[in-house]
Design a protein around this nucleic acid. Structure first.
Lengths: 204, 204
DNA sequence: TCGCTTTCATACCCAGGGTATGTAACTGTT
DNA sequence: AACAGTTACATACCCTGGGTATGAAAGCGA
């Protein structure tokens, strides 16, 4: 077992690997989110992260592969925000309302909008996007609806389909927010209509 | 005024131009719809239409420009279908219901799905897509809602926002239909939930 | 100490969007 | 009818950028 060779701490392989991998991911998340997928070259991302294309291709299967990881990251980020809100809700119905509002706040982030809502479907294909979104967001929304339905808050029906339709409406709402010159100003109107749409499903 | 020179009918510039332009558009619509924007090269489109890239660049400002024209074409196609249905509806509420169902049927077309729902936003940007969709579909939907609201069929509110949210839900529904291995089989369930979403807005 | 693997950098290939230039087909004018 | 000017293409080229092949240096197990 050799000792450290002087002041420079020698790093293990796993440390090096995960460090560069993380740097690359963070840089890619920033650039994909700011400039969009098509306008961001892989070499530029690697350079901004302090390495070359070769390193990027060593850690990820390609540009689309890197984007996919970034996409998943953003979804995890949103899912974490949802989680924090939902656990404090007093009842399933409030959890639904608060969750949807939180998702809209996530859409306020320009990077989230660009990566998840705009480029995601075109780059990864709708099926892949749908699968990842299901894993992190849609299932939560569906389960929330099921819980609300079980307690009689909302009407029954095909909740798999309905949760996805609501998700589509929320994405559109998120895009409206992001596009607006005054997101904070229109937030109440958009969030209000979104809640009305949700509230319209309440069992009368 | 010179006479025709033999068997070959000489064509005017406008005829030549519009003929090649149409051929290019039709071919691009087919290939973009089948293979997607990224996987379709401009040279391939031009070749399939019996010409070279030069001709394409003479008639359109570039690949994205050509795609934009194709995109508009598809929207006009869908709008025409909506128009045919809406005029026969006995009341605003039926017009809304029938219009939404017709839109879902448009989404059954794989090319429509690929061009309008998948590639459009990423290629043209959300703002441009939104503007074109507004011109052809969203305005119709909003006006339909306004008419329905004026006659007391649905509740009031911000109908600009609400129509867009409903549109988002419909697009998602369309993607579900297109993705399904058995579109005809799931059509009733999806259309049913879409109508429920719409019906939930009915003034109680 | 010595292979072996992992981690990157360098150099290269090539598909494809865009452009510059040449040429043939039409058009208005005298 | 001849000519200049414009339009409608084709050909040849540039160059960005994704992907790959090769090589070197840094850990790692024996």
């Amino acid at each position: 077992m050799p000792a450290k060779d002087g002041a420079v701490a020698r790093r293990t392989q796993a440390e090096r690997s995960s460090a560069t991998s993380s740097r690359l991911l963070a840089t890619a998340e920033e650039m994909f989110g700011r400039d969009g997928y098509a306008a961001t070259s892989l070499a530029a991302v690697a350079a901004a992260a302090g390495m070359t294309k070769g390193a990027a291709y060593h850690h990820f299967p390609g540009k689309a592969g890197l984007f996919r990881e970034v996409f998943v990251r953003r979804l995890r980020w949103a899912a974490a925000a949802l989680e924090r809100v939902a656990v404090h809700a007093p009842d399933p119905w409030s959890a639904l309302r608060e969750g949807c509002r939180t998702f809209l706040e996530c859409c306020t982030d320009p990077g989230f909008r660009q990566i998840v809502l705009l480029d995601g479907p075109a780059v990864l294909g709708w099926d892949a996007v749908r699968e990842i979104e299901y894993e992190h967001l849609l299932r939560v929304l569906r389960d929330g609806m099921r819980a609300a339905a079980a307690e009689g808050w909302i009407a029954g029906g095909d909740l798999d389909v309905r949760s996805q339709l609501v998700f589509g409406a929320l994405c559109e709402a998120g895009m409206m927010l992001a596009r607006s010159p005054d997101p904070e100003g229109v937030f109440p109107a958009v969030a209000g209509e979104a809640e009305r749409l949700l509230g319209a499903l309440v069992r009368g």
